[in-house]
Amino acid sequence: MASGVKPRVKVPKTAAAGEAITIKSLISHKMESGQRKDKEGNLIPRSIINRFTVEFNGQSVLDMAMEPAISTNPYVQFEALVPEAGDFVFTWYDDDGSVYDTTKSIAIG
């Protein structure tokens, strides 16, 4: 697992049933593009988050494929429907096989 990787998500704590909410997500990751060279002139191998998924109670909200052109510390903002109370599960997939995830609960109110 790459060091210093920390996910952050911003989800409202409550919503009305059927409401559309805005979600922001960020994960600290260097997103090494595979294009850069080190001081000795050797290519630094690509090491990125290549996929980001968001599900609510098991149903997909967003499934995003990321390429090296996504900036360091990938940021994604999108909108989700909240049909009922439940959990958003956010998952980031690293080139090195690591998987980072975080869960946010939302109540109806």
Binding site: G4, K6, R8, K10, K24, L26, S28, T72, N73, Y75
Partner: peptide
């Protein structure tokens, strides 16, 4: 503060 990428380092 969520849009500010500097804040992830504050968390770390």
């Amino acid at each position: 503060d969520f849009d500010n990428p500097g804040m992830i380092f504050v968390d770390l």
